[in-house]
Write a protein that binds this DNA or RNA. Structure first.
Lengths: 229, 229
DNA sequence: TAATAAATCGAGCGCTCGCTCGATTTTTAT
DNA sequence: ATAAAAATCGAGCGAGCGCTCGATTTATTA
């Protein structure tokens, strides 16, 4: 099965689906009433925000440029958010909820096998970040300029992801599958390997590497480091 | 020997020494003539720039705030650079030249032992990024907003670092010390582990981890993954 | 088709930004 | 002590920013 299909089993990670979820999550702040209009425009706004932000940063993106790229006027934008910061929070929320929901959804058949579970977590995280690449890059690069509450959520979300990995590692250690002294430290080392896929995507693409191939390479590398290769 | 002393054998990575090198590199753009005055002020300017930028980003730092933090006036700043962008380039140049010079300076006794050489590279890179932490965080986080020429240099510098690692890996593979299919890919996986130390320093510090301990943990992890643990 | 509601528009407001430059202070040399 | 040189100052400039709101266009309903 193609990696896209595998991922699709767990959720719809298209731009439109993300826009729909964001609309639902922020219905009270968005003035446009008719959902199909709102979802379509919101998708264009978010697409343009990611495109412009990931080039020079969110701060450097002017709302005038955004309006033009999204096909709206300055005033029109403000039917969809009540301030530039809200736009940032909307995108961030979508990233962390997508990651949290997916990683907690490991199927029955891998939960009992630590090595398979670890491979599943690594592969799914990479496939998700591939499907939502601009979202992930945005969340990673703009993390330092989050408003305080959003920053707290982001840190909590990252800690939750790491805890899932740490649990599988210590479970595997207890069963004698992994040789690992400090599961939390090992989990902390896996995280940047996952992030590197989307943060440095151009570099990997230049070497002709696909998301699947990267996921496989990281899994092998990690499992060998854990003495289960 | 303490890690600071070990590192000190290869160069002076204090703020003042960095300021002196930056002054020399940009003498033509800096109006202040007397070196001891210029180095002292430049050190304060760079220290303040790193402090303010690493909080909310370089773009978000205003030159008025910088002037106050550095103990100068708006006009006074412009004796030390001819524009905000030059300030960014000054700091970036210092980071990449420090990393390039250090990693190329491996002592004789480790060059002949791939495992020892790899450990040396990992440890020294981490110790350097610890000694110059704000510089490294700055270069990493602001990379996307570099002007085109500086961005090219940064990419080239990163590629050079990775090439050094790849060379040691393939050398070790040829000698049967490492089991590794693709040295370039393995080198690409090591880099984010080094970066994670300074990018996520608060998280590691919260867990009571020192630079030495982190370096040792990463070395062990990597060597095991390479079948040399 | 006329009336109502929904969605969009864009000039204008107050503000802060990077940057300049003549005035001023501080240091050095005579 | 005085003149010359070096270093610093800070009010002011034009530009672009996020954001507002009455006017206008588009869609819906009667």
């Amino acid at each position: 099965m193609s990696p896209e299909k595998r991922l699709a089993h767990y959720g719809d990670y298209s731009l439109e689906a993300a826009a729909a979820r964001i609309l639902e999550r922020h219905r009270d702040r968005i003035r446009t009433r008719k959902p199909h209009v709102a979802v379509a425009k919101l998708a264009k706004i978010i697409e343009a925000t990611l495109k412009l932000s990931n080039r020079l940063g969110f701060q450097a993106m002017s709302l005038r440029d955004l309006a033009e790229a999204a096909g709206l006027s300055m005033g029109g934008l403000y039917s969809y958010f009540d301030g530039k910061e809200t736009l940032l929070v909307m995108i961030l929320g979508e990233v962390s909820s997508a990651a949290e929901d997916l990683l907690a959804a490991a199927p029955e058949e891998v939960r009992d096998d630590p090595a398979a579970h670890l491979r599943w977590l690594i592969e799914m995280h990479i496939l998700l970040s591939e499907a939502m690449q601009p979202f992930f890059v945005f969340a990673y690069m703009e993390a330092k300029s989050f408003p305080a509450p959003a920053r707290k959520r982001a840190i909590a979300s990252e800690a939750a992801t790491e805890a899932i990995f740490a649990r599988v590692l210590s479970d595997g250690a207890a069963r004698g599958v992994f040789r690992v002294d400090d599961p939390h430290f090992a989990a902390a080392l896996i995280k940047p390997l996952l992030q590197d896929w989307y943060v440095k995507r151009p570099k990997h693409a230049r070497r002709g590497m696909s998301a699947e191939a990267y996921a496989l390479g990281v899994s092998d590398f990690v499992l060998k480091a854990l003495g289960a290769g």
